[in-house]
């Protein structure tokens, strides 16, 4: 064995436990999930002959399509809004803040409190006896509490924006931080005012961070279960609620598996499309 081969062999050997764990806890379950989506279930008996029945069931019920589209739309809106809201903060921390470390810490800390309780806090804010209604009543703007705040898709979007905020700030900050300040000076030197400098240099160079933020928020947001359950109401239910139902009350695992596989496929496709689109758009900027 040459030293290079021996080095590689030692490396693969050392990687084996980690890869085995990933194979067992991720690759195998996902493979089985894919298989399940082609199976059928009658009562407690699982029929392992391959069929497209589960996918056909999804296609035949417009209710599924509605929830699918709603989930993707809610997640897309939440990701985009989170990015737009977070970008100026990331920009401020990267280029203007004196105590960067402190600011990054301040952005991260609320993220580490129990996700369930943070979502619940929004229920308290938007609810019948919540913060907003109490405020409106105290100011005599309404006589009785308003009910349109909670249990709708807007409440879900708002809660998701809050829940995934650090995933927007941090990647954008990292990409901004990497920009060599002399590039901005060069742009100024060559005649660009601050606004032009931002659109011609800063924005295209931070696009990798924007894309990372989108992917990091869009994927978990599409599959979020807690937020739609607590603040979504009947019109704010998302795909995770449907998937969970197949493993709970409805007890149709193949259908649940097919829904999950469809979700992964749709989310991956949309992420690739969004990333390519964003990169194309950025490369048009000259």
């Amino acid at each position: 064995m040459t030293p290079a081969v021996a080095h590689a062999a030692r490396g693969y050997l050392l990687l084996t436990p980690a890869m085995a764990v990933l194979a067992f806890t991720m690759a195998a379950p996902l493979g089985l999930l894919l298989a399940y989506s082609f199976w059928t279930q009658h009562g407690l008996v699982v029929d392992t002959r391959l069929t497209l029945a589960a996918y056909a069931a999804i296609l035949s019920d417009p209710g599924f399509a509605l929830v699918f589209l709603r989930s993707l739309a809610i997640a897309a809106m939440a990701s985009l809004a989170a990015i737009v809201l977070a970008y100026p903060v990331a920009w401020f921390i990267a280029f203007r803040a004196r105590a960067k470390f402190l600011w990054l810490l301040l952005v991260t800390i609320p993220f580490w409190t129990s996700y369930l309780l943070r979502v619940f806090a929004w229920k308290v804010i938007l609810g019948y006896n919540g913060v907003i209604n109490s405020g409106l009543m105290a100011l005599h703007l309404v006589a009785t509490p308003v009910t349109f705040l909670l249990y709708n898709p807007v409440a879900v979007v708002l809660t998701l924006i809050h829940g995934y905020a650090p995933f927007a700030v941090l990647p954008i900050y990292v990409s901004l931080e990497k920009i060599d300040p002399s590039l901005l000076e060069a742009a100024a030197d060559l005649g660009d005012n601050p606004a032009k400098r931002f659109f011609r240099v800063t924005l295209p160079l931070s696009m990798s961070g924007v894309i990372a933020a989108f992917v990091l928020i869009f994927i978990p947001a599409t599959g979020d279960y807690v937020t739609p359950s607590l603040v979504g109401g009947a019109n704010g239910l998302m795909i995770a609620n449907l998937i969970q139902a197949q493993f709970g009350r409805a007890d149709n695992w193949p259908l649940g598996a097919a829904l999950a596989i469809t979700t992964i496929a749709a989310v991956s496709l949309l992420c690739v499309l969004a990333a390519t689109g964003a990169r194309r758009a950025a490369s048009r900027i000259r």
Binding site: L30, L32, V215, I219, G223, D224, A240
Partner: peptide, 16 residues
């Protein structure tokens, strides 16, 4: 695993 929604990871592990 970062690119798989938790719900999918959860149910597929349950199946396994």
């Amino acid at each position: 695993p970062l690119f798989i929604p938790d719900i999918v990871l959860g149910i597929s592990l349950l199946i396994l």
